[in-house]
Amino acid sequence: MAVGAEAIFGNSIVTTKLNSAISWARESSMWPYVFGTACCAIEFMSAASSKFDISRFGAEVVRFSPRQADLMVVAGTISHKQVPVLRKIYNQMTEPKWVISMGACACSGGFYDNYTTLQGIDSIIPVDVYVAGCPPRPEALLDALLQIQKLQKKEESIIKDRVNKNFKGQLDV
């Protein structure tokens, strides 16, 4: 038997927590910013196009400005020359923001263990979900998106910043 507001208004309203309601709205309307540098960016294109259709999960509004996006997909190798650019763009994104590290190179440098390649973007910016593969299949990226949605369900508060302010990357001295 319903109590409180539901008892008065019947089935016409649902009571919930503001956190859950906003997270529920967010999870199906992620706006990705694709930091695509290499082969993985081509697979992102596949994920976004008709066959795999990322819009089934509400993330088809690809933004080209980090200021309008809340999900950064780092797709491809990050060289040391690229590092300041990556960091700057990440910092330009507003809270709340999530990061997917797509592919072996972004996660760990992949098989480019050499003088020019950054060995994993998590030494520069915090990462939420890692996707394995070289490059990962589009389904793997979609799976990562679902993982992000799961994270959003777990989020404690929508008021608090979600990024750990104590995170220190290689360039943050």
Binding site: T37, S79, F111, Y112
Partner: peptide
């Protein structure tokens, strides 16, 4: 250029 230089030749 060079933002995707990943050391192919050295590898």
């Amino acid at each position: 250029i060079g933002y995707l230089h990943r050391g192919f030749e050295k590898s």
